[in-house]
Write a protein that binds this DNA or RNA. Structure first.
Lengths: 155, 155
DNA sequence: CGTTAATAGTTAAACGATTTAATAATTAAA
DNA sequence: TTTAATTATTAAATCGTTTAACTATTAACG
């Protein structure tokens, strides 16, 4: 592969890693606005899809420390969007689920995002989107593996 | 386009916007580690490519308030990586340039990233990468335009 | 059984990135 | 010359993150 293509991939990926989080933020806040941050929305999203999960699971999934999860869950809990339930068999474990309010807010946001994407999706054709998603997933996977490799050499 | 493909794009994009910033962070810190955050590296990168620029320019480019730029520039300045120079003709303006140390650190990071990307780039073929970059740019452009549209309706 | 590990989650302190609102200094416009 | 607009900064607040220490609980093993 030519050097310029590698360099361009790097440029784009770094650009991506800088800007896309902010674009996501705009996406979540789009139109009527939800008062949710990108990270909060993504957390609701994960819990909604899982039905119920633990802090440890979220920390592993998001690749952050458990204390970061505690913080974000606290903020969602203060907004009344999340419920904490202790496991009766193993009393160390806390299950996280969405409250009715949490569910409602999440689905509202999802619907808004869907409507928005519909407005511009016509500019792409299906195969282009599919290809993009595939390459992204591959790239993400490769980066994840690489990361484990480097960090295995340290610490 | 089918509903499932739209939904999948949304899922992937939201995932992307959540995770990619963290992957970028790992990329910047890879191997020997640079003590730069992703945002700091990206800022050095922009100034390096531009040669010299202003806070206002960075704020527009990064799509944040100018005070956020002041903050990040302060941190880089404290590390001795950035120089501030007042314009003699218009004394409101401050030009930002990299110091020698800033240049060195930035190029070290770039080289590390390049070497890393080389190790896994073989898993992709050139056309796939090119296509990925193109679609990314298109998507980014479309989202930028959409954002201006929604936010034009507010405020 | 009882002591020692390990695990799940939280708290506290610190830092980085961000926003809004207010301000200082300077230049442009009327 | 007074008023506007522009450039950059500061201050206060919030969010997301890390590391380190801690609590409560469960598992392991002699």
């Amino acid at each position: 592969m030519s050097d310029t293509v590698i360099q361009e991939l790097i440029d784009r990926y770094i650009e991506l890693s800088f800007s896309v989080h902010r674009r996501g933020e705009a996406l979540v806040k789009c139109q009527i606005g939800s008062d949710l941050t990108n990270d909060q929305h993504y957390t609701l999203r994960y819990i909604s899809k899982a039905g119920s999960c633990t802090s440890t699971e979220l920390a592993e999934e998001f690749d952050v420390q458990k204390s970061a999860i505690t913080a974000i869950i606290n903020r969602l809990w203060e907004k009344g969007l999340i419920k904490r339930t202790r496991d009766e068999n193993d009393r160390r474990v806390v299950y996280l689920t969405l409250t009715d309010k949490g569910n409602e807010l999440f689905y509202q946001a999802e619907e808004r995002i869907y409507r928005l994407v519909e407005t511009f999706i016509t500019k792409f054709d299906q195969s282009e989107i599919k290809q993009f998603i595939e390459t992204y997933e591959k790239l993400n996977q490769v980066l994840k593996e690489s990361k484990e490799l480097w960090w295995g050499n340290r610490a």
